[in-house]
Amino acid sequence: DRIFMTRTEALEFLLKAHQTAVDKIGHPSHKQTPADHAAIEALDRLLLDVRARRVDQFQINASAAQIIVTD
């Protein structure tokens, strides 16, 4: 599946995904793992790359739809 978004929409989408990941590892019942921190770092890099126009398409994980940034 493909989803087309403007750059602004894609950045909002990534910010929400980032916040969800941060909230998940901050929850008291969740045991933090290196994979959790790696996922947040990957989202940080992706946010910067989309914002800087170095990336025009991405996929958060293998089961997610491919996001295509349109400007």
Rank of each mutant, 00 (worst) to 15 (best):
A42D: 07
M5Y: 02
D36Q: 07
A38D: 10
Q19T: 06
A65N: 06
A17E: 09
V22C: 05
E9K: 07
T20N: 13
I68W: 10
S29N: 13
A52T: 11
Q57M: 13
A17P: 00
E41L: 11
I68C: 05
S63C: 09
I68M: 06
T8H: 14
G26W: 13
I67N: 01
V55S: 02
L14Y: 00
D56K: 14
I40N: 01
Q59M: 09
A52W: 11
A35M: 09
D1R: 02
I3M: 10
S63T: 11
T6R: 04
D36I: 08
D49W: 05
Q32Y: 12
A42E: 11
L48V: 13
N61L: 08
H27R: 12
L48G: 11
I40M: 08
D56N: 15
F13P: 00
R2P: 08
H18T: 05
P34M: 09
L11H: 02
A65C: 07
A38M: 10
G26Y: 14
M5V: 02
K16H: 08
Q59H: 07
A21N: 03
Q59D: 03
Q32H: 15
L47N: 01
K31V: 14
F13Q: 02
A17V: 11
H37F: 14
A38G: 05
R2I: 13
A10M: 01
A52C: 11
D56C: 12
K24H: 08
S29L: 10
E12R: 13
K31L: 13
A64Y: 12
G26P: 04
A62K: 10
R2W: 08
Q66E: 11
D71M: 05
E12Q: 12
A64K: 08
L14H: 00
R45C: 04
A35N: 10
L14K: 00
D49Q: 09
D23N: 12
S63Y: 13
P28R: 06
T8A: 14
Q19D: 05
S29W: 04
D71N: 06
L14F: 01
F58E: 00
L11E: 05
Q32E: 13
L11N: 02
S63F: 14
I68E: 03
R53T: 04
A64S: 14
A65V: 15
H30C: 05
V69H: 01
E9A: 09
K16N: 08
H27G: 10
S29I: 06
H18G: 02
L43N: 00
A64T: 13
F58R: 00
P34H: 09
Q66W: 15
P28S: 11
Q19R: 12
L15F: 10
L47S: 03
Q32W: 15
A62I: 09
E12D: 11
H18C: 05
R45I: 07
A17N: 03
H27Y: 08
L15S: 10
V50Y: 01
L47C: 04
F4Y: 14
A52H: 14
A17M: 14
H30E: 08
R7N: 03
A38L: 12
R53F: 08
H30Q: 06
A38H: 07
I25L: 13
L43D: 00
I68Q: 05
R51Y: 10
A17Q: 08
D56I: 14
Q19N: 07
H37G: 07
T6Q: 03
H18Y: 15
T70R: 13
F4T: 05
I3H: 04
K24S: 08
L46P: 00
A65F: 11
A21T: 06
G26A: 12
D44W: 15
Q19K: 13
D44H: 15
L43P: 00
H18Q: 09
P34F: 08
D71H: 14
D1F: 02
M5G: 00
L14S: 00
D36Y: 06
K31F: 13
T33Q: 10
Q57P: 01
Q19E: 07
S29G: 13
R54Q: 05
T20G: 08
A62H: 10
L15Q: 12
F58Y: 02
A10W: 01
H18W: 15
T20F: 12
R51S: 13
Q32K: 13
Q32V: 15
G26L: 14
L46Q: 01
A62Y: 08
L11K: 01
A10P: 00
F4E: 04
L15A: 12
L48P: 01
L43Y: 03
F4D: 01
N61I: 07
L11Q: 02
A42W: 14
V22S: 07
E12M: 11
V55Y: 02
R53W: 05
D56Y: 15
P28T: 08
I3V: 10
H37I: 14
Q66T: 13
H27Q: 12
Q19Y: 04
R7P: 02
R2T: 12
D36F: 07
K16R: 13
D49G: 12
D1N: 03
F58K: 00
I68G: 01
A17C: 06
D44P: 01
D71G: 07
A64I: 07
A42M: 15
V50T: 01
A42N: 09
I25G: 05
R51N: 05
R45Q: 12
L43F: 03
D71Y: 05
L15N: 08
E9T: 03
D49M: 12
P28Q: 09
H18M: 15
I60K: 01
A62S: 11
V50N: 00
L47A: 04
E12P: 00
F13L: 09
D56M: 14
V50H: 01
A65I: 13
F4A: 04
Q57W: 12
F58I: 03
I3F: 06
T33Y: 07
A39P: 03
T6A: 03
N61M: 10
P28I: 09
D71E: 09
A42G: 05
A35K: 08
H27F: 08
L46S: 00
P28H: 08
S63H: 13
D44Y: 15
V50C: 02
E9D: 06
I3Y: 06
I40P: 02
T20K: 14
V50K: 00
R45L: 07
H30I: 07
M5T: 00
N61P: 11
R45N: 07
D71A: 07
E41G: 07
